[in-house]
Design a protein around this nucleic acid. Structure first.
Lengths: 223, 223
DNA sequence: CGCGAAATTGAGGATACTCAACATCCGTGG
DNA sequence: CCACGGATGTTGAGTATCCTCAATTTCGCG
């Protein structure tokens, strides 16, 4: 289902010429794998043997500085592709946030994929461009937004991607949010508290849920 | 020359299957255009009619917040491709930094390009992945590096890309550097001064040149 | 109920920003 | 050739935002 949707999206973004539309697709017998909470999927510098598509759960990809400072460049949810590389090795580390199931594709096939499996090739290109668009938006956030603006942007973006009607169930811990937004956990916490005081969100008891009470206000705060 | 090099790079990244290697390439009669200093190439939100390859000069691409805060996501130098979009419109604004010459390609052809002109398609995919890699590295910089670390990273990156032997001729003003690194011009200036005091770089009289005196020290400072 | 992990809150401090003055560069024109 | 003026860059003083360190609370789970 998700796979079909993505293939259609990719096709609509990059329309096939008519004479190519009815090529037989080889049956997608790509292997799946399950990962436990916090399990490593691949490390920065690993040979890029596979790229992945999320079936269920959420994945974080990040880079580290030598002294341990971490920047999470993206979270990946169901239906999204990550780990496709142009060079021979992965440029970031990927870990399962909770329980995760992935589809694995051999990445040496990216070069020949355009001929073997054009649908998948288009999907990879589309997802790469999507990742680039997100990265550009995120650079604006990291370079130019205040702490509250960052948190507001994050919450809105998450609610748009997970299409939960106003209630977000955060799969990741505060430290992950902090390392994604270029903040500390304390500042993330204080920003959330501030948003709650202002009546824009509400934080239920178990700290993994967030209710968006005033989306318009959030959009204003996003800058 | 640069075009040949890039095509080769793209080909090595994404090797062609043997039976496709000798397809005739259609003559590349893509039109060129020159732009004056600070001239707009396209605006964020414009229909993405073309994508571009830099022949000479340098280009900045950026996004703005509603109140005018700016984030320059990248500078583009000779041989580099920018402005290729998956959707129908450009997601950032592009401007010439100095005098610039560009090659323009119709971007509606990206979808069919894989069949019409596989070499160019590979180049676009490779440049997109390259842009993504840069963006990920830049997010680490924006989110987790100090001012001096940012400036050191920027200088090293620039010297690696322009292959000038230890002497950088900055095409862009301080304000552009600041908006690229998520700093103010004052902080950029102070960081450069500090690096000069430490003997790592030297700043000649005309403020557009920088001499890298101690690359090892710069690499250490980059974090 | 009690423990450890995660999150929140508070106090104090550091980094980078703002505002302002000054310096330098460079093109223009006397 | 030098003086002028605007744009660009540097330096300084004070401040705000976010970070650090520490204490406390809350949550999840035996």
């Amino acid at each position: 289902m998700l796979s079909t949707l993505d293939a259609r999206t990719a096709a609509s973004i990059l329309p096939l010429p008519l004479h190519k539309r009815h090529e037989p697709l080889r049956p997608a017998v790509a292997p799946r794998r399950a990962y436990a909470k916090d399990e490593e999927i691949f490390l920065e510098g690993d040979e890029a043997e596979f790229f992945y598509k999320v079936v269920s759960g959420a994945v974080r990809t990040y880079k580290l500085l030598s002294d341990g400072r971490r920047q999470i460049d993206a979270f990946h949810f169901a239906g999204e592709i990550f780990g496709a590389e142009s060079g021979g090795e992965h440029r970031f580390t990927a870990e399962a946030i909770g329980e995760v199931t992935l589809v694995c594709h051999r990445s040496r096939s990216i070069g020949t994929m355009a001929f073997d499996n054009p649908m998948l090739a288009r999907e990879v290109l589309a997802s790469t461009m999507e990742a680039l668009a997100r990265a550009q938006e995120h650079m604006l956030l990291l370079g130019r937004k205040s702490a509250v603006e960052k948190v507001a942007s994050f919450l809105l973006g998450l609610s748009e991607r997970t299409t939960s009607g106003g209630v977000i169930d955060l799969p990741m811990a505060r430290i992950d949010i902090a390392d994604h937004l270029g903040l500390t956990i304390e500042t993330v916490s204080r920003s959330l508290t501030q948003l709650e005081r202002e009546g824009v969100i509400s934080l239920p008891a178990h700290r993994r849920g967030i209710v968006l009470k005033d989306r318009a206000a959030l959009r204003r705060l996003r800058a």
